[in-house]
């Protein structure tokens, strides 16, 4: 009986295979961001919709990750790696992303993580926090932000003008819609391809 409980406890913990799957998904997420997000973000208005567009593709990657590594800690690990990488940009972005990682992990633990809705909520939280990570430091720490990235100062000044207006909410809503669409597309593709291939 005790042996069974220990085995179950061990299977609930992240193992090497899970870390590797997380890393592979992270690389895929980054590739999508580089290939799709970068061209979208090259314009001032496009900056508002980077995450909305990318989320449509990221949905499949996140759904696969959450289905394959359905364990405690995966949302936190994934979000924190993202935050660490953003330290190269501006510390406040990394901070907001880290908060997003913690919030999504709390939701991941609180709700039934085997449900699609939980996966969708956690995915949406992480991406929405990424959107906020880009917007909030620019709104509240504008001068410090622009001083930290002087090369982008002109572009981000124009983006700031959009963020302080109603467009912030348009971008926010678009990100949420992108996440929901991405999540459902991911669910569909998981059923159509990945289950057949024996991956999940």
């Amino acid at each position: 009986m005790e042996n069974n409980a220990t085995t179950q406890k061990n299977s609930e913990k992240l193992n090497v295979r899970d870390y590797i799957t997380t890393a592979i998904c992270f690389v895929l997420l980054y590739v999508v961001f580089a290939v799709v997000g970068t061209p979208v973000g090259m314009s001032v208005v496009g900056n508002l919709f980077i995450f909305a567009v990318c989320a449509i593709l990221w949905g499949t990657i996140y759904m696969l990750l959450f289905t394959k590594v359905n364990k405690k800690g995966v949302a936190l690990l994934f979000g924190l790696i993202l935050a660490v990488l953003q330290l190269m940009n501006f510390w406040a972005i990394a901070l907001v992303l880290a908060i997003g990682a913690v919030v999504s992990e709390l939701v991941w633990r609180k709700l039934d993580r085997h449900k699609f809705s939980t996966m969708l909520i956690c995915f949406t939280i992480q991406i929405v926090f990424w959107y906020l990570a880009q917007a909030l430091p620019l709104i509240f720490l504008k001068d410090m932000y622009l001083a930290a990235v002087p090369a982008y100062a002109e572009l981000y000044s124009s983006v700031y003008e959009l963020y302080v207006g109603p467009m912030f909410f348009v971008g926010f809503l678009a990100t949420v819609i992108g996440c929901i669409a991405g999540g459902f597309i991911g669910k569909l593709l998981l059923k159509k391809h990945f289950e057949k291939a024996g991956i999940v």
Partner: peptide, 29 residues
């Protein structure tokens, strides 16, 4: 996008499994 993304993910997962097997053989766990 589906034709490009799905094979890339499937291939990546296969590579991931190979890496996991290699890592466990080396005693990383």
């Amino acid at each position: 996008i589906e034709y490009a993304l799905v094979p890339l993910i499937i291939r990546s997962m296969t590579v991931g499994d190979e890496l996991a097997a290699s890592a466990m053989t080396r005693g990383l766990d």
